[in-house]
């Protein structure tokens, strides 16, 4: 019992001191530094248009308008790309529900993209881990290009070139996978449409 008593004070005091340092001083000091040195990243890499926040570069959005490139399927609760309910489908590889879901997505994509060439890319029919994946593969973007070009009345070559300009390669060629940020690509599309013809809508 004496043993317990003699360690109680150091246990309490060291917990209080260490908790204050690691739980308050450290995060608050770092917040200060980050807010001064890298305010854009520290506040969520937000994209603004006409003073309004229209999204974050890092958080994907759900697109279903044929004039926009579409992102990956999202399994977040209630609605796709729900920012406050990140998560995946957690469907196992042998789960019949996974097969049915992929089949339904395939059918919907093929119907919406009659001019697309080649098989539907894998990332377009499988849900991401976070449900907020901002990227698709370059193949997935090129696969959708004919639909987008047609819906916008743009030459296909112009859309293909835009996708290529927005393709990011893996770090040092070995880390990660090639990707296209869907929100940025779509914003570039909107700007393109604004520049070339203002009346083609």
């Amino acid at each position: 019992m004496n043993e317990l008593k003699s360690v109680l004070r150091p246990a309490l005091v060291s917990f209080a001191l260490l908790a204050t340092l690691t739980g308050l001083v450290f995060p608050l000091a770092l917040t200060g530094i980050a807010q001064v040195a890298m305010p854009w990243q520290a506040n969520g890499s937000l994209i603004k248009q006409d003073g309004k926040i229209i999204g974050s570069r890092l958080i994907g959005q759900d697109f279903s308008d044929p004039r926009y490139f579409w992102g990956r399927p999202s399994a977040t609760a209630t609605l796709p790309y729900n920012g406050v309910a990140s998560g995946g489908s957690n469907l196992g590889p042998s789960n019949p529900v996974l097969v049915e879901t992929v089949q339904a997505r395939l059918a919907a994509l093929r119907a919406a993209n009659p001019d697309a060439k080649g098989p539907v890319p894998m990332d377009m029919v499988t849900a991401s881990a976070s449900g907020l994946d901002p990227d698709i593969s370059p193949e997935a973007a090129q696969w959708q290009a004919p639909r987008v070009a047609k819906a916008r009345g743009l030459p296909l070559a112009q859309v293909v070139t835009l996708v290529r300009a927005h393709t990011e390669q893996p770090m040092l060629g070995v880390l990660g996978a090639p990707r296209v940020n869907v929100l940025e690509l779509n914003l570039a599309l909107d700007r393109l449409a604004g520049q070339s013809t203002s009346g083609s809508r």
Partner: peptide, 26 residues
């Protein structure tokens, strides 16, 4: 700090609300 540089947020404010380009029907 390295993580913030790459895009990890570090702020005490709550969430932001973004206006979607393409409304979501669900």
């Amino acid at each position: 700090l390295f993580l913030v540089w790459q895009g990890v947020p570090q702020t005490l404010s709550a969430s932001h609300t973004a206006q979607l380009l393409d409304p979501v029907t669900y």
